[in-house]
Design a protein around this nucleic acid. Sequence first.
DNA 1: AGCAACTAAATTTTT
DNA 2: TTTAGTTGCT
Length: 670
Amino acid sequence: MRERIATLLGEPVEGLWLGTFHALCARMLRRHADYVGLTSSFTILDTDDQLRLLKQVVEPWRVDVKRWPLPGLLGVIHRWKDRGLTPERVTSSEDTEYADGNARAIYAAYQTRLRELNACDFGDLMLHVTEILRSRPDVLEQYQRSFRYILVDEYQDTNTIQYLWLRLLAKRPDGSSNICCVGDDDQSIYSWRGAEVENILRFETDFPGAKIVRLERNYRSTAQILGAASGLIAHNDGRLGKTLRPGRDDAEGEPVRIVGVWDSDAEARTVCERIEAWRRDGHALGEFAILVRAGFQTRAFEERLVQTGIPYRIVGGLRFYERAEIRDAMAYMRVMHHPADDLAFERIVNTPKRGVGPAALQKLHAAARPARIGLTQAARDLIGGGAMRGKTAENIATLLDRLDEARTLMEREGHVVAVGALLEESGYLDMWRNDTSPEAPGRLENLKELVRALADFGSLGEFLEHVALVMDAEGAAEEARVSVMTLHGAKGLEFDTVFLPGWEEGVFPSQRTLDEGGEKGLEEERRLAYVGVTRARHRAIILHAANRRIYANWQESTPSRFLDELPDEYVEREGEVASRQARRDYSGYFSSSVFSDGGSTSLSPLVARRRKLAEALAAEMSTLEIGSRVFHQKFGYGVVIDADRGAAEVAFEKSGSRRVMASYLELAPD
DNA sequence: AGCAACTAAATTTTT
DNA sequence: TTTAGTTGCT
């Protein structure tokens, strides 16, 4: 973005603050952290850390987590934060049933713990800074003076706290303001994150004298695509309303295609076949995107793309920084950077195994809590004072030494070398080298990649900040690859040809949104559909499958209602007959019990019981012979050395001999 | 403390 | 189908 602006201006951009709300707030909060009881080196916790922390906090309330799952509670807290509510500001009428009405108290305790850890979650970045701007007129004035112009993109996606923050900064005491917001109410797709479309509607009253400019010309898409998208979105009530006109008078373009297929595999196959065909005609792969409603849908496409040998990139799928090995390595770096990062310390202290179990951790906590010191410090004290001894103490001491060494090394050799050394010397890399599972080599590769990425940053601190805010590892950007991503991820992007699979009731619109959000939810899904279709410059191909596998079993699915809402004149339908035909041809293919009652997913209890029995019998009868080659989910291939009724001694190729349950083994071909 | 076996639950969407 | 969390054995 910075580069694009520089190009447009014809000169380098200096001094401009450019970033997401969260990134800008992080920058501000580092400057003024002390006003809210933090230091400038505070850590930004990701969802995983937040949950682990909440789990600890919630302990005294003895919350029934079966009934009130913690992620839900975290959601409640986040929604309060999105609305600018600190624990004190949550009125009793705002309090929910959640956690037996203790949510507000737990929220307060959670905030206290965060402060003790010198940490923030995402919501805090906005919340703390807004609190500072509210309570410190001097700080506010300083920013008001330095930001003479403010420009906000995707304004329809701002939530209450972001709105408050903006208004504080944009509205000067003399009443003047200089703010420019760009947005489209039809593209509001983040209400679940607290976004308020009303912010757009209120804009004129909030900033009197602001000029409204309507952009109704779309320079991206063909007339046919715009016609289809407009017809679809017209089904929503309560829009600001606009008529999109094509910005180009070139060819009308092709109609939006709707393709019906048999199942999700056929869907992936069809998409890949068409991409291949276009590719042969000389189209670059970067022109294509596959946009799905939810992350799980990417899998079928990924498999097929790999098979076909089409280069692709999955944007925001299983994200790089969310993988276990990367998170472990990051935790090592965090402790190195900031020894008092207790959550990170907890993660690494027993990874690799150092004989530090729950009991030892308990001991550390017991020492750290009353003394108000970090776990690392507590460990030093306990070991130094002889209160902790034996193998466990020795191992922890070694770990602490390695961390110290890494810090010294960083001074001399820089952060890249230091981190590499820490991962090596702590035994973390060896842990994966000794791992016999098939994923281990890939994980080592990822770790290498991570250390390589470190070099792009000036310091360890910069790197950690970057990762905390954008959980994605951006690979080489504009390569010739097909993009696979969620509809949410595609907002603001455009492609020549867009594939929109999975337009089926329950998938898109998503059942969950419908259940939770009712009519409002449906409208948001429809806006998401609108966003999807309008990502296309020339061609949009929508697909729907007649059958989809959900968890274990196949489920018949109905074409999405959105398909009927697309105006006929801009749409061409194909394959619906084919899929009906296929259904007849295959009707005996799946066990009849699944489909017999018109698409219900559950097997009848009788059938289920019979199936269980059959499985049990099969297990009993399959006597494993000594010498037969077997496969185990976890240990891989091996040969049976000894066997009795339920269990067998197996010599595994990679992990030696073990005694395992026979039912976990399957016969492998020699 | 560590591992294997069992169980229950799960798929939105993201800064 | 897969995985996270719990139990029970060594």
